[in-house]
Design a binder for these strands. Structure first.
Lengths: 352, 352
DNA sequence: AACGCTCACGTGAACGTTCACGGCCCCCCA
DNA sequence: TGGGGGGCCGTGAACGTTCACGTGAGCGTT
């Protein structure tokens, strides 16, 4: 290589052309171009770049040099067309900034990697339109999709164009699609028992969604079972699934039900927000107000007091989702019921 | 559709076959199979599934029905081969569980989405072998790669096979590749000025990497500039970039330099760990010991005392990386110097 | 001298789409 | 009655690889 270090440095990585077209634009170099320049056949080029055997080391070097010169890169499409087996899954996540979802994603990536699949990730930013948009793209580019979607089945089907879908955190009774989820009922039961045994009778909920989702339904069932007072003022919906959302929700709950002695948060971020608001109102946690989270984020150990929460194995959730995809692809029946759930586990720390 | 609801529910999403092969396995249905079943040509099938015009509504419906029957999905490879323009970028992240990286990823995803690109994500889990592995795959499947890599240029080149690479957080002097990074010098200067003005003279560093990385070099320069005492005992390397790592590192620092009055953390998690250890040793923060972080994670506002830190615009970092990729693809010169940096900003909260 | 074997390399076919045509039929209008 | 035009549909070709062969040169063995 006669290039000086400087020129290598400067020209580094610049897209250098294959061939000039009549219209002046540049076409990407093909295996043909390389073959011609190196004076060999396509097959020999293929042998060189994929370093297979049956090729003279000298010609191999010559071919690679030609490839470098033309900035040749094999077309992944042409390649994929002839060698099957490359699997791409789509993953649609509502909000990467909520620490819950990166953990789920990590589980998906881990399981996908083990199977040799790759994952293209979309952040829908809690926007249903963006969810559909993600589906539109992924239905063209992925072999399967897993993710969080709010739309009903028929809408999803319309944007899916036949690719298999695995829903995250949708009860199977709410969808015909394969799904993996969280056993909210069992989790909430553990949590409410814990609060009840600690003497709490006026328990509020800071929900995260408007409709009667699984967590709220489970909460209501426990409230009924334990014979606690309840009306809709005990449940307030936070404007967002964040600390700020939890703070706002707690403000409203304290106004509506000043007598509340414990709150059950839709997730850990909301619970943390609740603690902050409570403290700002002069109530100490857990003495004046107990706070229970739902997620088991590691940041719950860092706040003060440390958050008592229902811990979810988030990686496992992701891994399960990938397994569902594998089943669909194999033509098997997807997991239903408890096998497709992750059961929360109560982690008692300090806040309740 | 004569199917009962039940059968739809049950058979849902199961991979139903295209055609039986001699060996008994099933082949995915092609456009040809659909055409034959519907009694039309490929082109007509194409028109139906891509809903273009020039097709009779009745035949269209017939074709779509046939496609449904065969579970036909167009091959994305065959499609990509003929219509250019689909861009896939690879993103390699060290650890999705460190809140810093999901934010960077969010920036990458956001910018990629705006350009109509998709992103396949790999979590290398801070393992250099896995980094290379990711490169091996992505060099085959992606049109460009951006990510965190520890290997030197030549190793990367070998695993890259010609695809453009943008490095995250590597000073351009350390690599010939295009890069985006953090202006550690400016950031550390701000931080150290802040500590110095508060009266601190014995300042330790909890580093995150073994070599003399940019943050440590900047630290040493500031120490020299301010005329502070320094030897290697003032710098300890934490075993990992986590709260636990910070706790362990702080234990060692306190043992080596009990007179320390302030510590500068490699990142926010380490700084939080330092605070916890300090407190466990009976030192109150910031009175007995000031702690300064580097990252600006939102969890820094939640801990107590709230973490003073050098805030980095992590999304911007991701967006910049995508812009670098775009430049490389366009054959332009990548950004160098300050345009490719994100400058940290001191956020004074309570810990220092 | 005939055979066989290995090494290095080339050739046609196939992968599954879309694109650019071209053709047919029917209707309408002059 | 002729021609024009639009609606609907089909036919080759092309996209860029890899795969399964085929070929010829060179060398050693019998």
């Amino acid at each position: 290589m006669p290039d000086t270090v400087l020129s290598v440095w400067t020209d580094n990585q610049r897209a250098e052309p294959g061939a000039e077209r009549p219209d002046g634009t540049r076409r990407r170099a093909t295996i043909h171009d390389v073959a011609r320049l190196a004076g060999v056949s396509r097959q020999t080029v293929s042998r060189a770049v994929n370093d297979k055997g049956e090729i003279d080391p000298a010609t191999k070097e010559r071919v690679l040099e030609a490839a470098r010169l033309l900035d040749y890169r094999p077309s992944r499409f042409a390649r994929g067309l002839v060698q099957k087996g490359a699997v791409t899954a789509g993953l649609v996540i509502p909000d990467l900034r909520n620490p819950f979802f990166p953990e789920v994603a990590a589980g998906v990536l881990e399981a996908a990697e083990q199977r040799g699949w790759q994952v293209v990730v979309w952040d829908s930013r809690i926007d249903e339109a963006r969810e559909r948009q993600a589906l539109d793209v992924l239905s063209h580019q992925a072999d399967a999709v897993v993710g969080y979607f709010k739309d009903p089945d028929d809408v999803l089907t319309r944007h899916l164009g036949g690719v298999p879908l695995v829903l995250l955190e949708r009860g199977p009774q709410q969808t015909r699609f394969a799904a993996v989820g969280i056993d909210a009922a069992t989790g909430v039961e553990q949590g409410m028992n814990h609060l009840f045994r600690a003497g709490h009778r006026r328990i509020g909920m800071l929900d995260g969604v408007h409709g009667p989702g699984p967590r709220r339904l489970a909460f209501l069932e426990q409230v009924r079972r334990l014979g606690l007072p309840v009306d809709e003022d005990w449940i307030v919906v936070c404007p967002e699934h964040s600390v700020a959302g939890g703070e706002a929700g707690m403000e409203r709950l304290l106004r509506a039900r000043p007598g509340v002695t414990a709150v059950f948060g839709f997730n850990d971020l909301i619970a943390v927000g609740a603690m902050r608001t409570a403290r700002r109102h002069g109530r100490s946690v857990p003495d004046d107000l107990a706070v229970l989270g739902f997620d088991g984020l590691s940041l719950g150990e860092l706040v003060e007091p440390a958050l008592t929460t229902l811990h979810i194995d988030k990686r496992q959730l992701g891994r399960l989702a990938v397994e569902q995809v594998a089943r669909l692809r194999a033509g098997e029946e997807p997991l239903r019921g408890a096998d497709a759930w992750v059961t929360p586990e109560l982690v008692v720390r300090e806040s309740a």
